[in-house]
């Protein structure tokens, strides 16, 4: 860690602070999970250690699945720090709100394909929001922030992941959330195949129904 030069805070997230630093003549991102005062110290240590170990593992798994993710350079479990490649690009969150319909669709289909690849490989992202996706100038989409992810091949986990994606679109891109999700699901279906896609879609309805006050339960009253 001594060869990291001049770390500068660029984003204070909910669970980690993100710094930009120089490391052997390249720009890197340093992600540090800070202790949370509100949590019991044992629980805090447990959560930060677990996520610091699992995030790089999942990022590498995602790479194997053919999804663009930053390269991991260093992991310091004791201090809950991950040093990784700095991805130059724009957050998909900003792009979706600014882009024209055709570009939105193109980006969403790509997102769906990447999620499909992850799921085919048994990787669950765990926090699929458009803030955790970066579009590069070469129009590749990088997935970041696998802190809540897991290796899980079950339909349930896939369904929850896609449910979260849809909810993220609804809360942050409400003007065209259904149009976006349709495109995401199209890309997803192309990748995992129509059968799996159908099962995931049915699972999503089941997951929605577990919530107490949701419209899908209306027909059952």
């Amino acid at each position: 860690m001594d060869d990291l030069i001049a770390p500068q805070l660029i984003k204070k997230g909910a669970e980690a602070s993100i710094f930009l630093a120089d490391w052997h003549e390249r720009q890197v991102v340093l992600k540090k999970r800070l202790p949370k005062r509100y949590r019991h110290p044992d629980l805090d240590k447990q959560i930060r250690t677990y996520r610091t170990i699992h995030e790089p593992q999942l990022i590498n798994e995602a790479k194997k699945a053919g999804v663009q993710t930053p390269t991991i350079f260093l992991v310091d479990v004791r201090n809950a720090i991950i040093v990784m490649q700095f991805i130059v690009g724009k957050q998909v969150k900003t792009i979706l709100n600014e882009a024209a319909k055709t570009e939105r669709e193109e980006v969403c289909v790509k997102i769906g394909k990447s999620i499909g690849r992850l799921h085919k490989h048994g990787v669950i992202h765990g926090d699929l929001t458009t803030s955790n996706m970066i579009l590069t100038p070469k129009r590749k989409i990088f997935f970041v922030d696998f802190g809540l992810g897991e290796k899980n091949p079950e339909l349930e986990a896939m369904g929850v992941d896609m449910h979260l994606m849809r909810r993220a679109l609804q809360s942050t891109h409400f003007r065209f959330s259904e149009e976006c999700f349709k495109a995401v699901f199209q890309g997803y279906s192309d990748e995992v195949g129509a059968n799996v896609a159908k099962n995931v879609s049915e699972k999503m309805v089941e997951i929605r129904k577990r919530g107490r006050y949701v419209s899908e339960r209306r027909e059952e009253q």
Partner: peptide, 18 residues
């Protein structure tokens, strides 16, 4: 309480940062 409240606080912080 500790576990459930930590979960609620974490998601609230996520929404606040967002």
């Amino acid at each position: 309480q500790e576990i459930a409240f930590s979960m609620v606080t974490e998601v609230t912080e996520r929404a606040l940062a967002h």
